[in-house]
């Protein structure tokens, strides 16, 4: 009986969270579609989420591309297939590692920042103040962040793809002895438009998830500084898990048989 009761309790709590998140999702999407639009806020968020994330995304891509080239060279040499380094780096970065690693790095940086900012606004009654000033918190706070993250992530991933391939190229040509022109030709010949666009579509989904989780946890934070800290942690953890889970489903849709 006790076991059944705890299963029931878990089911109730889980359903409540899913219901709350679904309602937040619908309200957020509607607030992106229905005017008024706060373009100044959108511009500010594009700068914060996009431009300010460039260094961390760039460095992650550079070192990932470099390490990937080394690993493929070492692994490929076991069956005399060292020549595939350029091809695998290109496909690995554009299809998987570029969007997923950029998504996870931005989740850590942006989702936490959004949850902390909105959470602090919640506990200091600034969100209530917005309502009393006839301004919808969803339109003023949530919509610009959702739109900015959804726009910025594909741009960041485009840059990450380029830098990641560059990392592989540098290791391949400087350490592993590949000819520069051959490496580039192999990359350009092998890579297809679908490899890049699938990664960019994934990135847009990840951007939406990152902002949604940051806004959701920040908006519902309670209990002072501790509550804001909890919201920040939950935002990063849930965004990261959802990015990895949705990546699997998107990969199945794009490349599944």
């Amino acid at each position: 009986m006790l076991g059944l009761a705890s299963v029931g309790r878990f089911a109730l709590v889980f359903s409540a969270i899913v219901g709350k998140l679904s309602k937040f999702f619908v309200q957020s999407v509607l607030s992106c579609l229905v005017p008024p639009y706060f373009l100044g806020q959108l511009g500010r968020q594009l700068w914060r989420i996009g431009y300010n994330s460039l260094p961390v995304v760039g460095l992650t891509a550079l070192f990932t591309g470099s390490a990937l080239a080394l690993q493929i060279y070492i692994g490929g040499s076991r069956f005399n297939a060292e020549g595939i380094v350029a091809n695998i780096v290109a496909i690995g970065i554009t299809r998987e590692l570029g969007p997923v690693l950029a998504g996870l790095m931005v989740a850590g940086r942006v989702s936490a920042a959004i949850a902390a900012e909105i959470g602090t606004m919640r506990v200091t009654e600034q969100i209530d103040a917005l309502v009393t000033l006839s301004t919808s918190p969803f339109k003023y706070l949530v919509a610009p962040r959702l739109l900015a993250a959804t726009i910025c992530l594909p741009l960041l991933v485009g840059i990450a793809d380029t830098i990641g391939i560059l990392g592989g190229y540098l290791v391949g040509t400087r350490s592993l002895g590949f000819n520069s022109a051959v490496y580039l030709k192999n990359t350009m010949d092998f890579i297809e438009m679908g490899d890049v666009t699938s990664g960019l579509i994934k990135a847009a989904v990840f951007g939406f998830i990152i902002a949604l989780m940051g806004c959701y946890h920040g908006y519902h934070s309670a209990g002072g500084a501790q509550g804001v800290g909890r919201a920040t942690t939950n935002a990063v953890v849930s965004a990261s898990v959802l990015i990895l889970a949705s990546n699997y489903f998107l990969t199945s849709i794009f490349f599944g048989e």
Binding site: F38, M121, T124, E125, Q126, D128, A129, T132, L133, S134, T135, Y140
Partner: peptide, 27 residues
Amino acid sequence: FGMLFQGGALFDSLPVWENVAFGLVQG
């Protein structure tokens, strides 16, 4: 409505005059 909150609830990302003008500009 106008509302004076216990802790002020001023928007710390905006300068004072924009806080005061917020209801007019955004609302």
